[in-house]
Amino acid sequence: MTEVSSPVHFSEQMLETVDRLIAKYEKPECALLPILHLAQDQFGHLSPPVLNYVASLLKMPPGKVFDVVSFYTMFKTRDMGKWCLQICHNVTCTMMGAERLVHAAVESLGVGVNGVTEDKQFSLVTVECLGSCDKAPVMQVNNEFVERALDAEKVKNLIKDLREKGQTTFEEVTR
């Protein structure tokens, strides 16, 4: 285990939160997941220097941190722009036509899956099950769900709204 030096640093307040989290568990490395969420909120995405920093905080080998981060699709390892569109590609959603949503998004955005637009506004990924299978197909925009009777048209409109108005009321779409 080597300590990798990095210019990344948590603020005082965050370090306090980290200590509180570590105190809850038997070993420091058990607090990894909440701390990764903290880091992602703070830094936008989990780049290698951030992960090395988290590893050194928790006295874990950096490899283990990378291992965990790559497993969860909620943890972003690249800058995913302002709006990250995450479309579920697991069983139920695929059966209910998630591929059509993906095609629509790709068309509207002009980037492929895992791509980020030039202006760093949008990115598109396919993710694992979002836990809302009764309302399949499901899409998650940053941390909000868009679901129920979602189809290609609505996805295109959503992207248009976000582009022009910078916001959209998700309730409208789900109705």
């Binding site: 285990m1 080998p61 950096p62 490899g63 283990k64 990378f66 291992d67 790559s70 497993f71 694992e128």
Partner: peptide, 11 residues
């Protein structure tokens, strides 16, 4: 004890 190799992603 060098932990270089990891398995990333899943499925």
């Amino acid at each position: 004890h060098t932990d270089e190799l990891v398995i990333v992603n899943r499925g």
